[in-house]
């Protein structure tokens, strides 16, 4: 991997918190310190964290809009081409393509493609699935999906200096500042 040769195998530093309110105060300090490559890991989405971390909006809604328009366009074209062009259905002298009768399928495919865009778009933007991650080598970190809260500052951050950052994190009121390595040791 070797994301940062300066710190060898080190991925970053991790600090644990017991409650969302303790975490929140610390997160704001990390943000104000000017770190770029850092993250917060929580068992559930903590409200107000976007502002505390300074995360800007995602462009997922535009992907979903694109998906929906694709579905709508495809459904319209498909119904028109199949029933009015390629295989003409003559029923009681009615027009070969009538918009009202096409609406249900147009609606369903709009929803279907939007949902695909929301689901797959979210995973792709998040860089998942990714079954291995350096953080998984840390035993303590297993509680990130259960009942503990973590701040992780990556060694790849330009402001990262092992001793200084360690002391800074230790001053945030959490417990157990730990080093996380890129590769598993055991």
């Amino acid at each position: 991997m070797g994301a940062n040769t300066k710190h060898g195998d080190l991925y970053g530093l991790l600090i644990e918190f017991e409650s969302p309110s303790l975490l929140m105060a610390a997160v704001e300090k990390v943000r104000d310190e000017g770190f770029k490559k850092w993250d917060v890991h929580t068992p559930f989405p903590v409200h107000g964290m976007d502002d505390a971390m300074g995360i800007r909006g995602t462009n997922l809604p535009f992907l979903v809009l694109g998906g929906g328009l694709t579905g709508l366009g495809l459904a319209t074209l498909m119904q028109w081409w199949m029933n009015a062009v390629d295989y003409k259905f003559v029923i009681s002298g009615k027009p070969l393509f009538g918009l009202p009768a096409a609406v249900p399928v147009m609606f369903e495919l709009t929803v279907l493609f939007s949902a695909f865009a929301a689901f797959f778009g979210m995973w792709i933007l998040n860089g998942l699935p990714k079954l291995y991650h350096p953080l998984f080598t840390n035993r303590r970190f297993r509680r990130a999906t259960q009942d503990r809260f973590y701040i992780v500052v990556e060694a790849a951050d330009p402001r990262f200096k092992l001793e200084e950052t360690r002391n800074f994190l230790a001053s945030l009121g959490g417990s157990a500042v730990e080093e996380v390595n890129e590769s598993a040791e055991d």
Binding site: T42, A118, F119, L125, K130, L131, H133, F141, T145
Partner: peptide
Amino acid sequence: LGWRGSHRHWHRYEKAYLLLAGLATPL
């Protein structure tokens, strides 16, 4: 899928959840 509770992930996840809820409602 390698979920690790990252808040940068939660942020998009919650948006996707809201969008899917909005889509599933008329559906």
